[in-house]
Amino acid sequence: MPSTTDRPGTRAVPALTAAAAAADFILILTFAAIGRDAHARGETIIGVLSTAWPFLGGAAVTWLLLRLWRRPLALWPAGVAVWLGTVAIGMALRALTGQTVVLPFVVVALLSLAVFLLGYRLIIAVVIRLRARRRA
């Protein structure tokens, strides 16, 4: 668990940045696997990666353009940025490569990835605040 010096509002240590990036990566893969399973497309590794790559690309571009490594666990702006960037760029990449982009899928992606990408950041922020209150 990060110390209070590593809380979302401060500069992150490299290990914390790597953990946040890995969490985003794993949660985006989880989103793709759940979606494939819901549509009975199977959960082969190649299948999950083919569904996930546009969103992983969107997350990577967002991380790089907005330099999210500076405060990777902050709900705002990092969490919101990676969530919206993942969906927007991911959908654009899907459209450019001839994959399906329909309104219901966009809505499901927005909601699911909000829960995943914002959810763990919110939980971490709450835990850190509770620990800080107990110490005070």
Results as ranks from 00 to 15, higher is better:
residue 115 V to F: 11
residue 36 R to Q: 02
residue 48 V to W: 01
residue 84 L to Q: 05
residue 47 G to I: 14
residue 113 L to I: 07
residue 102 V to H: 12
residue 79 G to Q: 00
residue 125 A to C: 12
residue 17 T to A: 13
residue 7 R to P: 00
residue 83 W to Y: 06
residue 72 P to S: 08
residue 69 W to M: 15
residue 19 A to Q: 09
residue 30 T to N: 08
residue 129 R to E: 12
residue 71 R to M: 04
residue 86 T to S: 13
residue 53 W to A: 08
residue 34 I to S: 02
residue 101 V to H: 09
residue 67 R to C: 15
residue 90 G to D: 03
residue 7 R to D: 01
residue 3 S to T: 10
residue 74 A to W: 00
residue 53 W to F: 13
residue 78 A to K: 01
residue 11 R to Q: 12
residue 101 V to T: 11
residue 11 R to C: 10
residue 133 R to A: 13
residue 24 D to I: 06
residue 114 A to N: 03
residue 78 A to Q: 02
residue 81 A to V: 09
residue 76 W to E: 08
residue 5 T to R: 12
residue 17 T to H: 04
residue 114 A to F: 04
residue 41 R to I: 07
residue 128 I to K: 05
residue 63 W to T: 01
residue 4 T to A: 14
residue 76 W to M: 13
residue 67 R to E: 12
residue 12 A to D: 03
residue 115 V to Q: 07
residue 70 R to A: 12
residue 3 S to I: 06
residue 133 R to D: 09
residue 88 A to P: 07
residue 28 I to F: 09
residue 59 A to L: 05
residue 129 R to D: 11
residue 128 I to E: 09
residue 9 G to T: 13
residue 91 M to V: 03
residue 37 D to A: 14
residue 27 L to V: 13
residue 42 G to S: 07
residue 45 I to R: 10
residue 130 L to C: 12
residue 88 A to E: 06
residue 25 F to S: 08
